[in-house]
Nucleic acid binder design. Structure first.
Length: 686
DNA sequence: CGCACGAGAATTTTT
DNA sequence: TTCTCGTGCG
């Protein structure tokens, strides 16, 4: 039995123990949300004797699911294993894999990612002679995705979309997916709901199976996700946890109404608020509270810290983007010198593009950094190349993967030959491998040789069921390592890619170890679902967008680029709702900080190679009280060890500084001109 | 078929 | 500024 009294505070304990009906836990940032969910599951298993196999815990990311599993294992051991933990997508997929045949899905379907989807739509636009400049691919892709996340879609009603030839495009896309045996990201969820609607026995089975349902980050669920839980819960056995002030995904279809009006859909709902914060100093919370007070669409709450240290908030005005980066680097150096771990420091920005300047400055100063949630491991070219072979092998109707596999590494096969194969396969209604066998006889000798080689590889893959072995086989047979060595301009890039391939092999090995009865198809779908690298917590400064910082916390936080037009972004001015979402986003950012929070904005910034003038973000005014001040950081805030550039003398490193500001005398060791003393205003930071 | 070059666009956020 | 896409040549 769990001793909840010593492990949880009053509010948390109440949330864990409440089982008499639908429960909405409004958990502010840092109030122990994850703790409540984990303990609630442990409580259900240990105290209420509900087997973990009958509990569904929905998380926002795969990583969060994994973390929850680990924590739970520590609490209740092996009994935690059979828990259904994962994102809506992952859980739906599991259901679809078992029951998808009822919707006409072949068992070895392939999940396509954004890149595949774009390339398919691109093809279709070409076929239909639609001008891409006038009607961008992205627009069609977004609209298809939006449609698939509506009730209309699950009830097979036609989309109501006014864009040029949308129906034709959609229709062809649908057919393309059918012939290639594809489902896309959105299908995982919407097809599962279709299944619930069409196949009552399945729905009943699931309803029975899940005795308790928990949903984390509930503020970011969309309409279909709400439908999903409505279908499988019996209206009682459900607990959702979230924070309306942290809803930041409406652009992806998340509906804040889900959390604001939860009790309307589930009338018996009990609401428990968690407002005791264990993360941030009170000064930081004050700023956050003050900011979010400007939002109208919210339930309303005020966070109070349980910590004794008040923390520190500074608002800083910079001359330009470079000064901002320079400040961050210098401060970071100082903190690291004082014993703070680089991994406890984070730079948060609104758009990905802002990361570059920090990368440059940090690496110039030899401070280790990592970019969180950038390109996922499985999105990398070398990984996609290798996997494309396995994908065709697994699903011989997958023409996207075939195209990629035949082209990479280059071996004399291009679009012309590939299209022959695909067309022939459609015509004769045979799979692509069979089609290659036909085509071999009608192409030139060079092409035929390459195709035969490909066929032999496909044959060889049959010799093993070990996924790691398969990857190894592809790499070896295609001489992929040498290809990388030859074609990457820089050696270290090639080496990195080769290293990634070894990583893939070990990922495959690990997957098989953890899922002994899993198939190649299971492995491939898992790789498509994983989005950001679960890099080990190597000791590096974190560069991260505010969106992907959700759920994380850092001792010291630099929130940068708080300028009108950047944060909030220009396009959000038009509607009150969108501006409120930007404000929530800013709130999320602030509440990541534990001890020190630096909020910065730059008067000018280089955008597309042009200098742009800026005004401070409205949020700065909103979060600043009359007492706090903005510090202006001077342009030439040089420190020893900084790298600088001089018009005549080129690049060098600062050895010593005398005086301050623009007229300081700076001693520099230039790369090509040796030691010189220069007035600061003639130097540029690099 | 595959590469090289030049024009032109491009920045929200991601399961 | 940096990347993507299309064109044209070998």
């Amino acid at each position: 039995m769990l001793q909840l009294d010593i492990l949880l505070n009053e509010e948390q304990k109440k949330a864990v123990e409440y089982l008499d009906g639908p429960l909405l836990v409004l958990a502010g940032a840092g109030t122990g949300k994850t703790r409540v969910i984990t303990y609630k599951i442990a409580y259900l298993v240990e105290n209420c004797k509900i087997p973990a196999s009958k509990i569904m815990a929905v998380t926002f990311t795969n990583k969060a699911a994994k973390e929850m599993q680990n924590r739970l294992k520590n609490l209740i051991g092996i009994k935690a294993q059979p828990l259904w933990a994962g994102t809506f997508h992952a859980i739906s997929l599991r259901i679809l894999k078992n029951e998808g045949h009822l919707l006409g899905l072949k068992p070895f379907f392939t999940i396509i990612d954004e890149e595949d989807r774009t390339s398919i739509i691109n093809k279709i636009l070409k076929e239909l002679n639609i001008d891409k400049k006038q009607y961008p691919v992205k627009e069609y892709a977004n609209l298809i995705s939006k449609y698939k996340n509506t009730i209309d879609y699950v009830y097979d009603k036609d989309p109501i979309v006014s864009i040029y030839k949308f129906l034709e495009v959609y229709d062809r896309y649908k057919k393309y997916c059918a012939t290639n045996n594809y489902i896309d990201f959105d299908d995982m969820l919407s097809l599962t709901i279709k299944l619930f609607i069409k196949e009552d026995p399945i729905l009943q089975y699931c309803k029975n199976l899940f005795q308790y349902i928990l949903v984390d980050e509930y503020q970011d669920t969309n309409i279909l996700q709400f439908q999903f839980i409505k279908y499988i819960s019996n209206g009682k056995n459900i607990c959702v946890v979230g924070d309306d002030d942290q809803s930041i995904y409406s652009w992806r279809g998340a509906d804040i109404k889900n959390i604001l009006e939860f009790d309307k859909y589930f009338p018996e709902t009990t609401v428990i608020k968690l407002t005791t914060n264990y993360r941030s100093g009170q000064k930081i919370l004050d700023v956050a509270n003050k900011l979010i007070l400007h939002n109208k669409f919210r339930r309303g709450k005020n966070l109070k810290t349980a910590l004794t240290q008040p923390g520190k908030v500074e608002v800083l005005k910079f001359e330009n983007g470079e000064t901002e980066a320079l400040f961050v680097v210098n401060k970071t150096k100082e903190l690291i010198a004082n014993g703070i771990n680089p991994s406890d420091i984070a730079v948060l920005y609104r758009t990905n593009a802002q990361s570059r300047i920090f990368e440059t400055y940090l690496s110039n100063s030899q401070i280790p950094y990592r970019i969180v949630g950038n390109i996922s491991f499985y999105q990398r070219k070398e990984i996609k190349d290798i996997l494309s072979y396995l994908k065709v092998f697994d699903n011989p109707f997958d023409s996207q993967s075939l195209t990629r596999a035949l082209k990479n590494p280059p071996n004399g096969i291009g679009d012309a030959t590939t299209n022959k194969i695909i067309d022939n396969s459609t015509e004769k209604n045979v799979d692509l491998i069979t089609s290659i066998k036909d085509i071999v006889n009608i192409v030139s000798k060079k092409q035929a040789e390459a195709l035969n080689k490909f066929l032999r590889l496909m044959d060889m893959l049959k010799s093993t069921t070990d996924i790691a072995q398969m990857v190894h086989l592809v790499v070896k047979e295609r001489d992929y390592e040498n290809y990388l060595k030859q074609f990457d301009e820089e050696e270290y890039i090639a080496n990195k890619r080769i290293y990634n391939i070894y990583e893939l092999i070990s990922a495959a090995t690990q997957f098989v170890e953890n899922n002994s009865d899993a198939s190649l198809n299971d492995f491939l779908s898992t790789t498509t679902l994983i989005t950001s690298t679960d890099e080990l917590n190597d000791n590096a400064v974190n560069l991260i967008t505010v969106h992907s910082a959700k759920g994380l916390e850092f001792n010291t936080l630099f929130l940068v680029g708080l300028e009108e037009g950047l944060f909030p972004l220009y396009r959000t001015y038009s509607s009150e709702q969108e501006l409120e979402e930007e404000r929530r986003l800013c709130y999320v950012a602030i509440t990541r900080a534990k001890e020190r929070l630096y909020i910065g904005w730059a008067k000018t910034r280089l955008t597309y190679g042009k200098v742009i003038e800026n005004n401070p973000s409205i949020f700065i005014k909103e979060l600043t009280s009359c007492t706090s001040t903005t510090t202006t950081i001077d342009n030439n805030n040089f420190r020893k060890g900084n790298y600088v550039e001089h018009e005549k003398f080129g690049k060098g490193v600062i050895i010593d500084i005398n005086g301050s500001n623009d007229d300081a005398k700076v001693k520099i060791m230039f790369k090509n001109f040796g030691l010189k003393t220069i007035i600061a205003k003639f130097l540029k930071m690099i």
